[in-house]
């Protein structure tokens, strides 16, 4: 199973910015336990969605040659909650890109109302010491994810 927290790309500018959407439904497993009778999306999962949006933006900026992994959450602030039935929108910008890492900033809104901001740092494993430990196979941007992205491109509205 892949841990995907993005349903759709709404806007995309290679190497600059990405906007994605996640549609929250009561059918989501995690909402039954978080919390019983009060289903809200856990903030770490909101951050994961933002990191995935940013990670794909960063990965694509170097044509998916790098293993891009979340290294550090520099800042994260939440001012609201996301509940079932809402559309979460992640707006992410790539603010720094160097061979061994990158930084994105992002804002997340629920049904159009901002509920949080974050700054996230990624490490590029092939260009850090970690490259020696993790080998050649790009387990971050696998064939499966690239196929999904290709499908997303082919079904994108003009």
């Amino acid at each position: 199973m892949r841990w995907i927290w993005i349903d759709r790309f709404l806007a995309y500018e290679k190497g600059k910015s990405a906007t994605t959407a996640k549609y929250l439904s009561l059918a989501e497993d995690f909402l039954t336990a978080h919390f019983p009778g009060y289903p809200v999306m856990p903030a770490p999962l909101i951050l994961e969605g933002m990191a995935q949006t940013g990670g794909i933006l960063v990965g694509d900026a170097t044509d998916f040659r790098e293993k891009v992994v979340l290294a550090k959450i520099n800042k994260a602030t939440f001012t609201g909650e996301a509940v079932a039935g809402q559309e979460l929108v992640y707006k992410v910008e790539l603010i720094s890109l160097r061979s061994e890492g990158s930084i994105i900033t992002g804002e997340v809104s629920a049904d159009g109302i901002s509920i949080g901001q974050a700054e996230i740092q990624f490490a590029h494993l092939d260009n850090t010491r970690a490259g020696q430990m993790f080998g050649e196979t790009n387990f971050v941007f696998t064939g499966e994810l690239k196929r999904m992205l290709a499908q997303a491109h082919s079904t994108a509205k003009p």
């Binding site: 290294a71 720094s96 890492g101 740092q121 490490a123 850090t128 010491r129 970690a130």
Partner: peptide, 28 residues
């Protein structure tokens, strides 16, 4: 930790408006 060195490089670049080439401050 090792990942903090990358963070420090990013922040120093931003704070001082300089470019720090890879491996210059922390010779990998």
């Amino acid at each position: 930790e090792s990942i903090d060195f990358l963070d420090i490089v990013f922040r120093l670049e931003r704070e001082f408006g300089i470019k720090i080439p890879r491996g210059e401050l922390f010779p990998e």
